[in-house]
Design a protein around this nucleic acid. Structure first.
Lengths: 162, 162
DNA sequence: GAGAGACTACTCGGATACAGTCTGTCCGAGTAAATCCGG
DNA sequence: CCGGATTTACTCGGACAGACTGTATCCGAGTAGTCTCTC
């Protein structure tokens, strides 16, 4: 049970996009250079975000991506689910139905107790992620990233965003 | 991010082992038949449990597995981690270090904010699993499984356990 | 000088190979039970 | 009949292939900006 590296990339890219000037776009190429990632593969992560309607894209020169909603209305869960999918991490194949003691035609009432417990844990994980927005992340970063680096990064992005 | 089917199998097997008479063992073969699973592959899940010291094994006729601790002292988390490993689901490759604006020899103080948030969610997931023991699971099952099926299953297991 | 049209260069998006892990299977080492033999 | 050595049959444990998802890469469709030509 390990999340794909796309999740990490998508989150970092969203953090950068959240600091973008209003109405501007940032290209995959710029995002890839900023994070030192393979441009071609990173584009797949951004495509996932685009399909989930988290970001908007534009073509042509000075094209790229920008957030489709305010940063305060995009949660970590949105980003994670855009990349990993909304399916629960635990899948119940209902193996209790194979019990040899079970009478023919026996029908279960509800989901298996084991699955219920696993799903509760999954729900707790998602709830935690739902509670953190990109805006909150930016706020945290602004506090702990050295001001000089923060400013120069902002300049870098602004320069590449148009 | 999807858990392997071994996790489901291991949990169901632990549930059965928890209802085993004191001092008896149940073989992989019996567990596989009870759940309708491939014996050879199921054995790998049980090996994981054995390596994690959750179960004890014995060889020879009437050999097999039994819980190494009381059911009340084995949590879901123990079983899940035995199969999936104790590593966190989110790995931070510290891509912020590739930021082109970063001065040479710059050294980060703590873990990346994004990683911290993801790890908090992971901790919440694990905490939820740590809070449920096999004993609690058995109690739940005993309440919701039809008494006739519960009894016959217990008989079946007892018959195969030695 | 201004406007319209064509061109260019850059973008995203999906289709295409490679790798690693999960799934499934096999056989050998080791042991507890059952058997057999001698006392 | 009882005790012990031998045989046996059954178990676990690790070593060995196949399938699927994750990783990485490529090229084509489409558009915004730019340039040029005409008025």
């Amino acid at each position: 049970m390990i999340l794909k590296s796309q999740v990490e990339w998508a989150l970092h890219c969203c953090a950068v996009l959240a600091g973008l000037p209003e109405g501007r776009y940032l290209s995959t190429k710029a995002l890839a250079e900023f994070h030192g990632l393979p441009k071609e593969y990173l584009s797949k992560a951004l495509q996932s975000l685009s399909q989930a309607k988290l970001v908007e894209s534009t073509l042509g020169p000075s094209g790229g991506y920008r957030l489709a909603r305010p940063a305060s209305e995009v949660s970590f869960l949105d980003v994670v689910e855009a990349v990993e999918g909304k399916e629960r991490s635990f899948v119940c194949s209902n193996i209790r139905a194979n019990n040899p003691c079970r009478p023919e035609g026996f029908c279960d009432t509800g989901p298996c107790a084991i699955a219920r417990i696993m799903w509760e844990a999954d729900a707790a994980w998602r709830a935690k992620l739902r509670g953190v927005s990109l805006a909150a992340l930016i706020q945290t970063l602004e506090q702990e990233v050295p001001p000089a680096l923060w400013r120069s990064s902002g300049e870098w992005v602004k320069r590449r965003a148009g």
